[in-house]
Amino acid sequence: WEITFERNGKRITVRTTDHRLLELFEKLWRNGADERELERLAEEINR
């Protein structure tokens, strides 16, 4: 799966075969987690 999240013109794409990681990322994104931390998390998930 691949999903791109966008907020205030900032886009972060997450790619993984584990839908649970996408759900976790989406919850953090929707709850306003720090964008720098989300970028780092996305990099780890995308590996």
Rank of each mutant, 00 (worst) to 15 (best):
W1G: 08
W1S: 06
W1A: 07
W1R: 06
E2A: 01
E2H: 02
E2Q: 03
E2F: 05
I3A: 10
I3G: 07
I3M: 13
I3N: 06
T4Y: 05
T4D: 07
T4A: 08
T4Q: 07
F5W: 05
F5T: 01
F5R: 02
F5P: 00
F5K: 02
E6G: 01
E6R: 01
E6N: 03
E6T: 05
E6Q: 05
E6K: 01
R7Q: 09
R7V: 15
R7Y: 11
R7P: 02
R7W: 09
R7S: 13
N8I: 02
N8L: 05
G9D: 05
G9K: 02
G9Q: 03
K10C: 07
K10M: 14
K10P: 01
K10W: 06
K10D: 03
R11Y: 12
R11K: 15
R11D: 03
R11I: 11
I12R: 01
I12Y: 08
I12G: 00
I12K: 00
I12C: 03
T13Q: 07
T13H: 07
T13V: 13
V14P: 00
V14W: 00
R15M: 05
R15E: 02
R15C: 03
T16E: 01
T16K: 01
T16A: 10
T16S: 11
T17V: 08
T17E: 09
T17L: 08
T17W: 04
D18F: 02
D18K: 03
H19Y: 13
H19V: 14
H19I: 15
H19M: 14
R20S: 12
R20T: 14
R20N: 13
L21F: 07
L21Y: 08
L22M: 11
L22N: 01
L22K: 06
L22F: 09
L22V: 11
E23R: 07
E23F: 04
E23G: 05
E23D: 14
E23Q: 08
L24W: 14
L24A: 12
L24Y: 14
L24V: 09
L24M: 12
F25V: 02
F25W: 04
E26Y: 11
E26W: 09
E26Q: 05
L28C: 10
L28P: 00
L28D: 03
L28T: 04
W29S: 05
W29Y: 10
R30F: 14
R30M: 13
R30L: 15
R30E: 15
R30K: 13
R30N: 15
N31T: 12
N31I: 04
N31E: 15
G32H: 09
G32I: 04
G32T: 04
G32Q: 07
G32R: 03
G32P: 02
A33D: 04
A33S: 08
A33I: 09
D34F: 15
D34K: 03
E35L: 15
E35F: 15
E35M: 15
E35C: 09
E35P: 10
R36V: 15
R36F: 14
R36I: 15
R36D: 15
E37W: 08
E37T: 14
E37I: 14
E37H: 07
E37S: 10
L38P: 00
E39C: 07
E39Q: 11
E39W: 04
E39T: 10
R40C: 12
R40F: 08
R40S: 11
R40E: 10
R40D: 09
L41S: 01
L41A: 06
L41V: 10
A42D: 01
A42V: 09
A42G: 03
A42S: 05
A42N: 03
E43K: 08
E43I: 09
E43L: 09
E44P: 01
E44D: 13
E44T: 11
E44Q: 13
E44N: 07
I45R: 01
N46F: 07
N46S: 12
N46C: 07
N46D: 05
N46M: 09
N46E: 07
N46Y: 05
R47F: 07
R47H: 10
R47C: 08
R47V: 09
R47E: 08
